[in-house]
Each structure stands twice: as structure tokens, then as C-alpha cells.
């Protein structure tokens, strides 16, 4: 990995991102509305339900941001002709996208906290976390797991300009399957198997451990197992993304499709 390129793309992504006010919609408005809907469905605005809803909204915010940013940046590069300039440089596309994904994860954390703060401000339920430090540590790890997923999704956009369809299809299923919306145990058995393969599922479970006093794992695992599984699966996804990205680079040089948008 090229640290210089990672830092440069992080900075470039930050400037680009902040200059485009569209990010507010998927990152804050959408998860916030979702949180409100969850609360009104439950007709209960007491501690645990608010926390469950806010947690779901926060994860949706992080995921929506990851998928929006992962798809938008490469689409923008293709549309704007900068993808060719990037590709022409000696830096691997993977390194550039790592920097961008780290920014996306960072802004996702900010979004999650904003959702939490706004919900708390409106409902004033005095939500408390069982283990605040552990919660934010796990939240950061979960964000990294989402960022690694974002890397995998980005490969679709390197391969083809039509990647946006893939990202649209992936957004809500991942959210449901990871257990952020409903407990994994409530999903059909077939989907539960897929849940265990997703790093964010373990992250969501671990976050609940840290948030709720006396939480009984929906996956039947300990907090440590959740964290280990999340980290290992994230690394595995990153490795897969790395190989797919290299293959994608070769494929677009062969097909001559780098300039299509």
C-alpha cells in the first residue's frame, strides 16, 4: 500500500465531499427519517427502544454513506474524465480508493453521532450506553468493516459504469441482513447464513453488547468473538477487493472501457 496516495485521496475526497451538499440526504436525512419511523412503529419512546431505533438509524447512516460515497466517487471520476488520469498514474486504484473509503468511514461516524444527537434532542429520553467507551470503539471498527465493504462495491464501478445498479440493489438487503433493522434471529434461516458472512452483522451485534446492559447475543456469541469475526471478515473482504480491483484494472485496459461513462 502507498501511504502517500492514501493520504492524498483521503484529503481529495474530503474536499470533494464537503463541496457537494447532496451528501446530507443519504447520510443524515434518510437515516433520521428511518429512526423516526422505527420509533413511531413501536409507539414507545423509552430508553431501550429509542436506543435500538437510533442504533439502526445510525448504522443505516453509516452504510448509506459508505455505499453512496463508494459508488459516487468512481462514477464521478468516470463522468468527469479523472478516472483516466488516475489510472494513468503509477498508483494503484486500490490505494486511491482506500483513502477515500477511510474518509467515508470517518464521515459515517459523524453521521451516526449526528443521528444519535438529533434523536436524543427531539425525544429527550436520556438514553444511556452500558459501555460508552467500548461502544464507540466498536462503532469505529464497524465503520471500518463497512468501509471494507465499500471497497468491494467500488470494484463494480471500476469494472463498469453500470455499477450504480449494483449499489442500488445492495443498499437495503445488506442493511436488513446485517441485523441493523431486525434481529438476525428473525430472518429466514437461509438469510441468517449470509448474515454470518457479513462483517457488519458481527459489528452490529457487538455494538448492542456495548449499548445494552445484560444483552443476550442474537448470534449466540461472546463480545470478543463478535469483534474477532468482524475484523477477520473485514480483512478477508479487503483482500478479495484487492484482487478483484487488480483484475478490474487489467480488464478495463484490455476492453478499453476506462473512458466510458
Amino acid at each position: 500500500m502507498n501511504p502517500r496516495a492514501v493520504t492524498a485521496s483521503f484529503k481529495q475526497q474530503a474536499i470533494q465531499f464537503m463541496a457537494d451538499p447532496q451528501w446530507i440526504i443519504p447520510s443524515i436525512v434518510s437515516p433520521f427519517l428511518f429512526t423516526m419511523v422505527m420509533l413511531y412503529i413501536h409507539q414507545d419512546v423509552t430508553g431501550p427502544v429509542v436506543l435500538q431505533a437510533v442504533l439502526g438509524g445510525g448504522v443505516l447512516g453509516m452504510w448509506a454513506n459508505t455505499i453512496f460515497a463508494s459508488s459516487f466517487t468512481i462514477s464521478y471520476d468516470r463522468m468527469n474524465g479523472t478516472f483516466e488520469s488516475m489510472l494513468l498514474s503509477p498508483t494503484k486504484i486500490f490505494d486511491i480508493l482506500i483513502g477515500r473509503s477511510i474518509w467515508n468511514a470517518f464521515i459515517g461516524l459523524v453521521n451516526a453521532l449526528l443521528v444519535f444527537a438529533i434523536a436524543e434532542m427531539i425525544f429527550r429520553t436520556g438514553v444511556s450506553l452500558a459501555n460508552p467507551i467500548g461502544f464507540f470503539f466498536i462503532l469505529a471498527l464497524t465503520l471500518m468493516s463497512l468501509a471494507s465493504f465499500g471497497m468491494l462495491i467500488s470494484t463494480a464501478f471500476v469494472f463498469s459504469r453500470m455499477g450504480r445498479f449494483f449499489s442500488s440493489v445492495a443498499e437495503y438487503p445488506i442493511y436488513v441482513i446485517s441485523g441493523a433493522l431486525v434481529p438476525i434471529s428473525a430472518l429466514p434461516v437461509g438469510l441468517q447464513h449470509i448474515s454470518y458472512l457479513l462483517a457488519p452483522s458481527w459489528g452490529v451485534d457487538a455494538m448492542r453488547y456495548a449499548a445494552f446492559e445484560g444483552y443476550g447475543s442474537m448470534m449466540g456469541t461472546s463480545l470478543l468473538t463478535d469483534i474477532i469475526m468482524m475484523v477477520m471478515l473485514s480483512i478477508a473482504v479487503l483482500i478479495i477487493a484487492y484482487f478483484i480491483m487488480n483484475k478490474a484494472e487489467r480488464a478495463i485496459l484490455s476492453a478499453g472501457s476506462a473512458t466510458r461513462y
Binding site: 492524498a8 481529495q12 474536499i15 470533494q16 457537494d20 468527469n80 474524465g81 479523472t82 483516466e84
Partner: peptide, 15 residues
């Protein structure tokens, strides 16, 4: 095409 429009000329060169 081929430049980051929301970056300045200098920021493009730095990137």
C-alpha cells in the same frame, strides 16, 4: 474533462 472541478488548480496538482 480530466480535472477535479471542486478542487483548485493547486489542489489538483498536489493530488
Amino acid at each position: 474533462r480530466g480535472l477535479y472541478y471542486r478542487l483548485s488548480g493547486r489542489q489538483n496538482l498536489e493530488f
